[in-house]
Design a protein around this nucleic acid. Structure first.
Lengths: 322, 322
DNA sequence: TTGTACGCGTTATCAC
DNA sequence: GTGATAACGCGTACAA
């Protein structure tokens, strides 16, 4: 028979093909361990069954959890997932999007969105080029004009956390944040300040640090060296950083909780295992990743998204104080 | 000018092309935001600049760390990385390898190797088919005939841990392990038993559980319900599971360390942040991932690998006992 | 329903 | 050094 017939049975074309042929083709494919050459398929179709995910650091538990959700969705949708690591570097991010574009992926998921558009011009250009070849970009909480976005109200979550802790008697706080310009971090800093102040507290300082546990450790060490009053609350914009803060506090011979309170953000799995348990805001990262993937493959313009809620989780790292 | 010339400047062919042409081509490419269609490139070349990684669960810190190393190597080698999740399911693993093959990746990295070859026949067939199309497969500690392997002596590491803890006075141990048939888990169980017994200890029981933190929790809960003498050591074959064990012990009102000692394996980053600090064996997972990627792209038959060593890390979860 | 033939974007083999 | 041109493996009008 002809190649065309075989092609039709193997790639689920709308066309119908006689059962006898279909069986023979399938048997042959099975016997030969045949796999369609997806590259050739992609050149012919102009797009490939692939979705690319860009995360700042795959070793970071939050990124890993998000990636996990994306992977689940990808498996379900039958697309392969490629993951690239930006290391929080905007230039690298642009380069990666450019390179990834070469594979003509169906979609692109950007896990780390930036706020403001200063250096975002290059990215925007790449995303536009990507859109021009019918690719769909999705950002997590971003505001790119050329991309869809998974809504995530970090600001409201942080506000609720700030209010809750002010209500528990904390009056002075120090925030350990990522460098300005990142949507999630910025929103968390602002939201926390709003909530904490509304409850009568005061944010003494915003300390900039990196994104990893060790960066949090270093920041807290410096903070402690500069002198930190007992009863102060340290709010780190991510649990990973909060872990470092806790370690630094303990290494300095102070007690986390009664002496220096610590709160984080994300609720990574280890947050409940660490001692004292870390007060934080739960972000449904796995679900966020899954939805991002869905947003990529979904054909509907905008399928209804029930709305993702962030939940404040108070644990032992912030005992009531009065 | 001709397409051929443009192609030559854009893909770093060995051929030389006049400087004037080169400049014009590069300028045009830049202006148009041109990206070579890697799919077409792959069809033409017969292989793509892509490496696929299969991990059991990307949300697991150990897998994430390994993936991180692979990603670093991939970036360095200029290949894109695709990640698929097996969920520890052999059948799914085979399906994934088959599907991934469609992309004609240059290489394939299997993070979770199995011991024994009962159900490994299908996998072996896929790997053989992959090798036939000039793909290179690498397993972490595996023994597939059709794949290279990154050597990792889990057995020796576990033996050292067992000996060390027996030397610290522990006499009775319970092992919480993954289902039999997985190389890493099996090697760790056997090694630990050897070391512990050589030091005068005795392994009372080998309890099978899943791979995640919650599985460890459940296993420990059952173990405690069945009655666990004070002074018993619980060795979990991974830190993730050990975290769950610790939580269960604490939730049962017993103290980790003085009462029930706990040890793990991997030394995931959180192992030093949890309290008490978790005694474990450090596996250089990031480096393992990096090497696996190198082994895929390396042209030399077998570039010298300095040898990866596992190091016993004794922390507070296993205080001296006598 | 099935077969033919062309196109997808790129590389590689030839002549020039 | 450069330019035609035939693959690469597959999708898909279009014709049969």
């Amino acid at each position: 028979m002809s190649l065309a017939t075989a092609s039709r049975v193997l790639n689920g074309s709308t066309r119908k093909v006689a059962e006898s042929y279909r069986e023979r083709v399938e048997a042959a494919a099975e016997k030969l361990g045949y796999t369609p050459n997806l590259s050739a398929q992609a050149t012919a179709r102009g797009t490939s069954a692939m979705v690319a995910l860009l995360v700042p650091d795959i070793a970071d538990p939050a990124s890993a959890l998000l990636a996990s959700g994306v992977a689940r969705g990808a498996e379900e949708a039958g697309v392969v997932l490629t993951i690239a690591v930006t290391e929080h570097d905007p230039e690298r991010e642009v380069r990666l999007v450019h390179a990834l574009r070469g594979h003509r992926p169906r979609g692109l998921i950007l896990a780390e969105a930036r706020s403001g558009a200063p250096q975002g011009a290059d990215l925007e250009r790449e995303l536009q080029a990507f859109a021009d070849m019918n690719g769909r970009a999705v950002t997590v909480g971003g505001e790119e004009k050329t991309a869809r976005s998974i809504a995530l109200d970090d600001r409201a979550g942080a506000r609720a956390l700030g209010a809750e802790l002010a209500g528990r008697g904390y009056r002075e706080a120090v925030v350990v944040a990522a460098p300005a310009g990142l949507r999630a971090s910025d929103a968390r800093v602002e939201g926390f300040a709003e909530g904490f102040q509304s409850g009568g507290g005061e944010v003494r300082e915003i300390r900039r640090s990196g994104f990893a546990r060790d960066d949090g450790y270093a920041a807290a060490r410096d903070l402690l060296a500069d002198g930190l009053d007992a009863g102060t609350l340290v709010f780190a914009v991510s649990d990973a950083v909060a872990f470092g803060v806790m370690a630094a506090v303990q290494d300095a011979g102070r007690e986390v909780g009664a002496d220096i309170a610590v709160a984080g953000f994300d609720d990574i799995p280890a947050a409940r295992d660490i001692r004292p348990g870390l007060t934080t805001v739960r972000v449904p990262l796995e679900e966020v990743g899954y939805r991002a993937l869905r947003a990529v493959v979904e054909t509907d313009p905008d399928a209804s998204t029930p709305g993702l809620t962030l939940e404040v989780l108070v644990r032992e790292s912030t005992p009531p104080r009065r």
